[in-house]
Simulated scan of single mutants.
Amino acid sequence: MHTGPLIPPSLRATALIDLAALRSNVAALRAHAPGAAFMAVVKADAYGHGMVECARAARQAGAEWLGAATPQEALALREAGLPGRILCWLWTPGGPWRECVEAGIDVTVSARWALDEVVAAARAADRPARVQLKIDTGLGRNGAQPADWPDLTRAARAAEREGTVRVTGVWSHFSCADEPDHPSIARELTAFRTALAQAADAGLEPEVRHLANSPGTLTLPEAHFDMVRPGVAMYGISPVPRLGGPADFGLRPVMTLAARLASVKRVPGGHGVSYGHLYVTPGETTLALVPLGYADGVPRHASGTGPVLVAGKWRTVAGRVAMDQFVVDLGGDGAAPGDEAVLFGPGDAGEPTAEDWARACGTIAYEIVTRIGARVPRVYSGEAA
């Protein structure tokens, strides 16, 4: 738990990242799936938390695998010196297949064109590619359709026999695991088991079979198979808020977003606030300026709704969120320039959480943390010795 000021004096704002909390979250999630390997999903700059630092912390906590969406993310992890297994899955034709093969990264193949490209890359690199095949069990995004799966698995096995690939995994992704008892869950489990049987019929013997994302890890033990892939839960956000908050699953939010007030001033009643004057002061009051805006990732649709802890109380964004700043009305309370405003954090000091922001904005907490931009410095605490 962080104590003392959140923001160094030289900075206007920070996203404080508690790596001790992240390691604790990995341990808690591993306890939910004790028989499975653990893939720490660090795509999208670790959901806005800082990819390399969070990947290192997850490795320290025992994560055997790292998961990245794009090959560029996976290569950046390698370039940062992170060893061990890394999987990436979002490919387009002409991608850096050879670079990933040479870096020892496991690559996902969802169609014959991708298998053809990775085989060519493996031949050029003169080493076999580590390939994981993805089946579309119902999400409708990436992954081979069931009708195309037998052909893809047979072609992958033929590439194995010629020595250009090694099929290390078979996997898929749930569509509605965050909705307990949704009928798609059972259908997709059945489809995945069928795909595994067909892969075996083709002669494939993958190291890992995996399906469970964060909600699957926490609520669907039958979906754990050989490995689980927690993403947002690793950062201390509940993936199933209908069932409970982070603490109910032994998790703790990792990011705290705070800024130092840039201005505090008295204004008369009837004073317009921010663009469009959607908010007009009801009487004489004190306005505080928070130097964060939509260029930093604060949602513009939080205008008039976003909660902020200032001077010991929850306030609401007054008027529109601008590109670099927004205003809160302190009423009769006082504050001073340089005082801290906390947009969200674990909630220990009464501050809002990312889930509170999600409810205020009509979105999910995943988006709230992931959208915090690079203009907000990440400050890390809880590094391992």
Rank of each mutant, 00 (worst) to 15 (best):
9 P>W: 00
14 T>D: 11
18 D>N: 12
23 R>D: 05
26 V>N: 00
27 A>T: 15
27 A>L: 14
34 P>R: 12
36 A>C: 06
42 V>I: 13
43 K>N: 09
45 D>S: 07
46 A>H: 07
53 E>Q: 14
54 C>Y: 03
55 A>G: 09
55 A>N: 05
58 A>N: 00
62 G>E: 06
75 L>K: 10
80 A>C: 12
84 G>A: 08
90 L>N: 13
93 P>K: 03
93 P>I: 07
100 C>P: 03
100 C>Q: 05
102 E>C: 05
107 V>M: 15
116 D>F: 01
119 V>W: 02
120 A>R: 15
122 A>F: 12
124 A>Q: 14
129 A>D: 02
133 L>F: 02
134 K>T: 10
140 G>A: 09
143 G>E: 00
144 A>P: 04
144 A>H: 02
145 Q>S: 08
160 E>I: 02
168 T>R: 11
172 S>E: 10
175 S>E: 11
175 S>P: 01
175 S>H: 03
183 P>G: 08
187 R>L: 14
194 T>N: 13
201 D>S: 12
204 L>M: 13
205 E>T: 15
222 E>P: 03
229 R>C: 11
230 P>K: 01
234 M>Y: 05
238 S>F: 01
240 V>N: 02
242 R>I: 10
245 G>M: 07
248 D>F: 05
250 G>P: 06
254 V>A: 06
264 V>M: 03
270 G>F: 07
274 S>D: 15
287 L>Y: 03
288 A>L: 01
300 R>V: 12
307 P>W: 04
308 V>A: 08
312 G>V: 12
312 G>Q: 08
314 W>G: 14
319 G>A: 09
325 Q>S: 14
327 V>A: 02
336 A>N: 05
338 G>R: 04
338 G>S: 06
340 E>G: 04
348 D>S: 14
348 D>V: 08
350 G>W: 05
358 A>T: 04
361 C>K: 00
369 V>D: 01
372 I>T: 13
373 G>K: 11
374 A>M: 06
379 V>R: 08
380 Y>Q: 09
382 G>D: 08
384 A>F: 02
